[in-house]
Computed example of a mutant assay.
Amino acid sequence: MNRPPIPAELRRAVLVEAGHRCAIPRCNNTDIDIHHIIPWSQCKKHEYQNLIALCPLCHRRVHKNEIDRKSLRQYKKLLVSEFSFSDSLSFQSPPIEIKRKLSHSDLSQTKVGFDFEFPDFKDPAARIVSRNIELWGNELLVEYLKGLEVLRKNPMPPEPIIVWLRGRYEVVRRDSYVISLRYTIERFSNYAAHRGIETRVQNFIINPFQPLTILELIESKDSLKQLAELARSELLSSNERKRDHDLVIRGTMPKYENFMLFNFHEYALEFTFERYQIGCGAEGISRIYLHYHMLNAIVKPDVLDILQQHDGFSESMFTREK
């Protein structure tokens, strides 16, 4: 079995958790590897709670059994608890209302620009979420700047280059247990006649902190098949519109990539299907809500238990619609 790469969301979260330094106390080396506490050969999966940032030297010490697994787990446990105290609250990005922004503009080119907003959560437990999203925004900015450099060297490159990017978010749920955001990313390339729009999501459990992608949410591949059947049933039985059966089946095949866009509400899991995924372009974006009681055999039990808890401070769109 080939070892798949660690998903970007998990790698980013592990690096933010450790402050982009080795997790071993007082090491402070910034040359970082991502280590599986329980070896990959045994677990065969990437999970946030099993990943820790180590420098190459400490990584070798672990493999020589000079640092045991119990110690690694203790070091990882300390990282999040220390985050709120070590965070100086001084982001690199200037504040805009209750948001912060990463931006770049080139006054010599009117159709060039980067504008990415992200939330500035003040409470200590949620600040690691803000840091994760800021780092994601920086990754997009680096990608954008690399494209501009290519254009400066060759005004007519063979591949399209993103010359304009705008990121806006909506807080779908925020409480003591979960933070769930939905992003709209608008892009415009040098060869495009129209802007491209895509949905991206950011989901986090607060305590214990864990970023959640579809791989961490779904119990197994068999559970993914159940989810696909449930989603199809909801889409085809909807009274909102008459959907093309074959297109719905095609867009809800039991593949992880078909269910990557999800958000948490107080009482339901919301899935977003992009334009053209389950219908023609004119139908636009489609969304379905699956109540948590429908997901007992689909979502991992420990995650589902957390999702069903709430403390009255949620900003859930679903509850407002109710």
Results as ranks from 00 to 15, higher is better:
242 K>N: 14
237 S>H: 12
249 I>C: 14
249 I>D: 06
251 G>T: 01
232 R>K: 15
230 L>R: 15
234 E>Y: 04
238 S>T: 11
234 E>A: 10
250 R>C: 08
236 L>F: 10
222 D>W: 03
232 R>P: 11
241 R>W: 05
251 G>C: 01
230 L>A: 01
241 R>Q: 13
241 R>Y: 09
226 Q>C: 03
248 V>D: 11
246 D>G: 08
241 R>F: 12
236 L>R: 03
243 R>M: 02
227 L>D: 02
234 E>D: 06
233 S>G: 08
230 L>H: 07
229 E>K: 11
242 K>I: 14
239 N>S: 15
239 N>P: 07
243 R>N: 05
236 L>P: 08
236 L>I: 03
224 L>Y: 13
248 V>G: 08
237 S>T: 15
229 E>I: 02
222 D>M: 10
251 G>N: 02
230 L>F: 02
222 D>C: 01
223 S>V: 02
227 L>S: 04
233 S>F: 10
222 D>T: 09
232 R>G: 06
248 V>F: 03
243 R>C: 00
250 R>W: 08
228 A>L: 01
244 D>F: 00
238 S>E: 11
234 E>N: 05
244 D>H: 03
245 H>F: 09
228 A>I: 01
238 S>M: 05
229 E>Y: 09
235 L>H: 02
228 A>G: 06
248 V>L: 06
249 I>F: 04
226 Q>G: 10
249 I>W: 06
245 H>I: 12
237 S>F: 04
240 E>N: 14
241 R>P: 05
228 A>Y: 00
242 K>A: 14
249 I>H: 12
231 A>K: 00
233 S>Q: 15
231 A>D: 02
227 L>Y: 05
244 D>Q: 03
251 G>P: 01
224 L>K: 11
247 L>H: 13
238 S>V: 00
222 D>R: 03
224 L>D: 14
226 Q>I: 01
239 N>H: 10
240 E>R: 15
239 N>K: 13
240 E>W: 13
248 V>S: 13
230 L>Y: 10
226 Q>P: 00
234 E>M: 00
240 E>D: 15
238 S>L: 06
233 S>D: 12
222 D>N: 08
237 S>C: 09
251 G>M: 04
245 H>G: 04
242 K>L: 12
236 L>S: 04
224 L>N: 06
229 E>P: 00
239 N>V: 12
